[in-house]
Design a protein around this nucleic acid. Structure first.
Lengths: 215, 215
DNA sequence: TATTGTGAACCGGTTCACAGCG
DNA sequence: CGCTGTGAACCGGTTCACAATA
């Protein structure tokens, strides 16, 4: 049996999101059809994705929202708190320090780093900015699991190397460059610049329309 | 002949990025092997991706960096300026207003919107924040092509509807929700929250290692 | 009866081998 | 001779049909 397709992992995140909304609205149960409709995915796909991990539904009845949500959180590794650091406290890094997820349990902002003496020492959100030179030390001390990489493009690869050496397991890269990480460090790109450029590709040719009727 | 795979479009963006770096470093020409190595893609894949759009190389010699870069910019629609608006001027929206891409030609920040009277009227980056109620009017006036959507999750769908009605052609969604847009509006997600959750999935099981040697 | 769970068919993207050509 | 361009083979993810079952 082969590995789980990356696309499946991405959809699991979407299902979890949908289930969380449903739970908030008081919905008790949902069929694969219901989930698929909201997630913009076929019901087949929903069932196949879930089947990689086990059986979570009841034939004839569908899925219990609370149960499936709990299972997905477990599958995605969201049942224990993750220690997160931000590397690069420019505008974006500072904005991310207030990211709402840090209010909840799963993700805890435990450190923030920069190289600029003008920023080091300042308190931003829940943490005080420290020198990037202290990364290894601090990472060991506070058991940093994950990092947001929000440094300029030219500094990204060095920062990845430093994070990998410090034992950080996953990096969310916001810098618009191709960086390389060792096998044991997972890298995910959250790429504004790339997103913008994909957007222009798709938008360039299609005709513009305002409202429903044109002409 | 069918449409271009979405994965190909994503890789074109990467190739462009790589070529831009090469050009800055004074590299004149590159083979599909060279490009693939830097982009973390096979040489086959590079050639196949490019073949969807034409012939850009010289057999026996490879690709001329400047030429291929120009062609990719044309293919991706990056030869004309795009008018961009930011909807939602919280921390993230404000950080994005200073995004370096706005310094260059391709993307011009032409408007910023919010619903909070405390923010409306303030000058941020190159623009003054306006009421979201004036979106339709302003969009027509300044020919807004694209939008960054940085509103809270609960406000995202309404904002998408308003943007679509105002004739905006593409939306880069930063809100962690599933939103629906009409056919003629392209939606790309830049999803911090989803990226973080995919990261925990991959990282949870693998063993942690510090440095190169363990034990 | 309704809806899940799943083996098999299908399809499209990736890989490959090599013909084409500078 | 080296590297591109591309038709064909391959593979894996998606779709499907249906058996299983609450």
């Amino acid at each position: 049996m082969s590995a789980i397709p990356a696309a499946t992992v991405g959809r699991l995140v979407t299902y979890l999101r949908v289930l969380t909304e449903m739970e908030q609205e008081g919905v008790r149960s949902a069929s694969s059809d219901d989930l698929g409709a909201v997630a913009h995915v076929s019901a087949f796909q929903v069932r196949k994705d879930l089947a990689y991990f086990g059986r979570f539904g009841t034939r004839g009845a569908g899925y219990t929202v609370a149960t499936l949500r709990r299972e997905l959180r477990r599958i995605l590794g969201l049942t224990r708190p993750w220690h997160v650091a931000i590397v690069g406290m420019g505008r974006l890094g500072q904005a991310l320090a207030d990211y709402p997820s840090f209010d909840r349990q799963e993700f805890r902002l435990v450190a923030a780093f920069d190289v600029d003496p003008a920023v080091i020492g300042r308190r931003i959100g829940a943490v005080q900015v420290e020198s990037l030179a202290t990364l290894a030390e601090v990472a060991a001390e506070r058991a940093i699991d994950l990092a947001f990489l929000t440094v300029p493009a030219g500094a990204a690869q060095n920062a990845v190397d430093a994070l990998a050496a410090a034992g950080v397991r996953g990096i969310l890269n916001f810098a618009p460059v191709v960086v390389t990480a060792p096998e044991n460090v997972r890298l995910e790109a959250v790429d504004l610049s790339a997103g913008l450029q994909r957007l222009t590709y798709y938008v360039q040719s299609e005709p513009a329309t305002v409202g429903e009727v044109t002409g």
